[in-house]
């Protein structure tokens, strides 16, 4: 499986947001729980729109949610 060029802090941010579940986040973003799980595990690269939506929900800038690997 091809590894993505970036990591993410979604799992940590979910727990910091009252232990939000993947299903809750998925519902807010407009994707399925499975898609959130795939993004979290760096198995799926989300579109820019979904990435921005996730960052917006946590109230963080995009580069705090998704971190480019140098």
């Amino acid at each position: 499986m091809k590894k993505l060029a970036f990591n993410n802090n979604i799992k940590i941010l979910r727990f910091m947001s009252n232990e939000m579940t993947q299903a809750d986040l998925g519902e807010k973003v407009g994707v399925t729980r499975q898609t959130i799980a795939a993004i979290e595990q760096s198995k799926y690269s989300p579109s820019l729109e979904v990435a921005f939506r996730i960052a917006h929900i946590f109230g963080r800038p995009l580069d705090e949610v998704f971190i480019w690997k140098d």
Binding site: G30, V31, T32, Q34, T35, A38, Y44, P46, S47, V50
Partner: peptide, 11 residues
């Protein structure tokens, strides 16, 4: 509960 879910971008 999952039946009403629309196809998302990954799907």
């Amino acid at each position: 509960s999952e039946v009403t879910f629309k196809e998302d971008e990954r799907d």
